[in-house]
Simulated assay, not measured.
Amino acid sequence: MKTLTKEMQAAITPDMALDLLKQGNARFVNNLKINRNLLQQANETSDGQHPFAVILSCIDSRTSAELIFDQGLGDIFSVRVAGNIINEDILGSMEFGCKVAGSKIIVVLGHTKCGAIKGACDHVEMGNLTALLTKIRPAVDEELTITENRNSSNPEFVEKVSEINVKRTVRSIVERSPILRDMIKAGEIQIVGGIHDITTGVVQFHEVESL
């Protein structure tokens, strides 16, 4: 598998970038990982990197974006934080990845059985985690279809909140970053949410966000 060059990155459209991720996830699910020389890729990217995607995912140890999308060194910018929430530091990182470094797609990736989502559902308060979970709480409040057992003991409630949290994060990125919003409007990049099933490995993408 060739290491991405600036020319190769430039030739990738936002739609192609999404397709590359879908193909990679299909390989992961079917245990057909591409054979890569990672040391060679490390050497070839030592003077510069040209990732085609920025992926915001959870810190969960089972959701490594490089693995579940079968990507190598230099292919993606991986941003990880519990609950795949957004803040200005992450927004700045995304703006760098797309506007400066040339990535073509932003993916907000939630996952099933998420501990951060469960914590928000249970109103957990613990040190600095309290402030992080506060950013997820609006997704808990927005889920109105389930009226009983609105806590982590209800798997259906947890997964519904996870879906809402991903969609809220996507909207927040578009609303809070004029740079990324303008790039989306111009068709230079696209943004999409998705959920990774940690049992099957399958990523279900949402509809691409359009402005």
Rank of each mutant, 00 (worst) to 15 (best):
L129K: 06
Q40M: 15
R36D: 14
I34Y: 10
G127W: 07
R36A: 15
C58K: 03
V79P: 03
M1W: 02
E163P: 01
E188H: 13
R168L: 00
E66R: 13
D141L: 03
Q41I: 07
T145C: 14
A17N: 07
V158C: 01
G92T: 04
A131G: 05
S177G: 02
Q204K: 00
G187W: 00
M126Y: 10
K185M: 14
Q23N: 15
E44H: 12
K6W: 05
S57Q: 03
V170W: 13
V170T: 14
L39D: 13
D182H: 10
D60P: 07
T145I: 14
G193H: 09
N43K: 14
Q23W: 14
D15S: 07
K104D: 11
I12M: 04
L129V: 08
V81H: 09
P138S: 06
S93Y: 08
Q49I: 13
A116R: 01
N149A: 05
S61A: 10
I76H: 03
L56S: 07
G110W: 01
E175H: 12
I189D: 00
S152K: 02
A131V: 09
S61C: 04
Q49W: 08
N84I: 06
C98F: 03
H123P: 08
N128V: 14
D89P: 15
I173N: 07
M94E: 04
F52G: 10
G201A: 13
I195V: 09
S61K: 09
L4A: 07
G24P: 01
Q71E: 04
M8C: 05
V174I: 14
G110I: 07
